[in-house]
């Protein structure tokens, strides 16, 4: 099982050592590592339900828990900041349980100094992505609880 808490602490350390400009460069590295959306999700009939509507650029997210959390994403290529943050979240939660993912701190963007680097208006869209990932994990959790009872 993943140790999300210490991963978050490492992430905070990694970003807080950098100045805002360097934090954006680091986000660009994350963006480059975001894998393509697997084929099985590409033409999903319920695709629109996976859109994050607060983002001005198209963002679609899927969260599976076959063997711990895997975040699958399709982000418009003209939105490297969003790609970077989604990729960061993907690496952060890889292999974690729904309970853990639902508990990612809501102030993650502040903790890693990205609000400072990006500004408030842009951060809002990224907050929405975080909110969505937490909510998707929460749904998994309650679905699992229902099937057990």
């Amino acid at each position: 099982m993943c140790d999300l808490q210490s991963r978050i602490e490492e992430l905070e350390e990694e970003f807080q050592l950098l100045d805002p400009r360097e934090r954006l460069e680091l986000l660009l590295d994350y963006a480059a590592r975001l894998p393509e959306l697997p084929e099985e999700f590409r033409d999903a009939a319920d695709r629109e339900l996976h859109r994050v509507p607060e983002c001005q650029t198209p963002v679609f997210l899927w969260l599976t828990f076959d063997d711990g959390a895997v975040l699958h994403a399709e982000v418009a290529p003209e939105a490297p900041t969003v790609q970077g943050f989604v990729s960061l979240l993907r690496e952060l939660i890889a292999g974690c349980s729904p309970e853990q993912v639902a508990q990612i701190p809501q102030d993650l963007l502040h903790r890693v100094g990205l609000v400072e680097a990006l500004g408030m208006v842009r951060s809002r869209g990224l907050h929405a992505i975080l909110h969505r990932v937490r909510a998707m994990a929460g749904q998994q959790q309650s679905a699992a609880a229902k099937s057990q009872s």
Binding site: P20, L24, A31, Q56, P80, T81, G84, G119, R122
Partner: peptide, 21 residues
């Protein structure tokens, strides 16, 4: 709109001015 888009590749002589930062 995206603060990193310029860094992905831009007109060679261009500089960036970000509306927010």
């Amino acid at each position: 709109e995206d603060v990193l888009l310029y860094d992905m590749g831009h007109i060679p002589e261009a500089v960036k001015v970000d509306w927010q930062t």
